[in-house]
Amino acid sequence: MWNSPAEFFAMGGYALYVWSSFGVCALVLIWEPVSIRLRKKAIIHRLKLERLAEQFDSESR
């Protein structure tokens, strides 16, 4: 147990490792859904372009 908030944040001398680990974990947890959403938008955009290209090909024949 910690006797003060300063001891808690110091984490027994391992504060840099502990808090940077929490920070990296938080960034990954935030970035993953954002990355998935961006990839989904890119895939949908590419599929729409492919459908337009196929329509154009079928109309030009």
Rank of each mutant, 00 (worst) to 15 (best):
E59T: 10
A10C: 02
A10P: 00
R39P: 00
S21Y: 06
P5H: 05
L29I: 10
K41G: 08
C25E: 05
F8S: 00
E54T: 08
F56M: 07
R46S: 14
R46A: 15
Q55R: 11
R51A: 14
R37C: 08
S4Y: 01
S58M: 12
W19Y: 07
S58P: 00
C25F: 13
A26L: 14
I43W: 06
E54M: 14
I43D: 07
S4P: 00
I44E: 15
R51H: 08
A6Q: 14
W31N: 05
R61A: 07
R61N: 07
N3W: 01
L49M: 14
V24A: 10
P5G: 05
V18E: 03
V24F: 04
V18W: 10
G13V: 06
G13D: 04
E50K: 13
A6L: 13
R37D: 09
G12R: 03
M1Y: 12
E59I: 08
E32T: 12
E59D: 10
W2C: 06
F22D: 01
V34A: 11
L52S: 12
S35M: 00
L47M: 13
D57Q: 13
V24T: 07
R37G: 06
D57C: 08
A53I: 03
V24L: 11
S20A: 02
R37L: 10
S35G: 01
I30K: 03
R39W: 03
S60W: 10
A10L: 05
R37A: 14
L49R: 15
M1F: 12
L29M: 12
A26Q: 04
R51E: 15
N3T: 02
S20V: 02
S21C: 09
I36P: 01
R37S: 12
M11A: 15
S4V: 02
L16H: 06
L27F: 12
S35E: 05
I36F: 08
A42Q: 14
H45F: 12
R61L: 11
L27Q: 04
R46Q: 15
L52Y: 04
K48R: 14
E32W: 13
A53P: 00
Y17A: 14
G23R: 01
A26R: 05
V18K: 04
G12V: 03
F9K: 05
G12N: 04
A42H: 07
F8I: 00
F22A: 10
I44F: 11
V34T: 06
S58W: 06
V28P: 01
L47T: 05
E54R: 15
V34I: 14
P33D: 06
L47S: 09
C25D: 03
V28R: 03
M11E: 14
I44C: 04
A26P: 02
I44V: 15
L49K: 15
A42I: 06
V24N: 02
A15R: 03
P33H: 05
C25N: 07
L16C: 09
E7D: 14
R39M: 07
Y17R: 08
K48N: 15
L52N: 09
R39A: 10
C25S: 13
I36V: 14
E7C: 02
E54P: 01
Y17V: 13
F22V: 13
L29W: 05
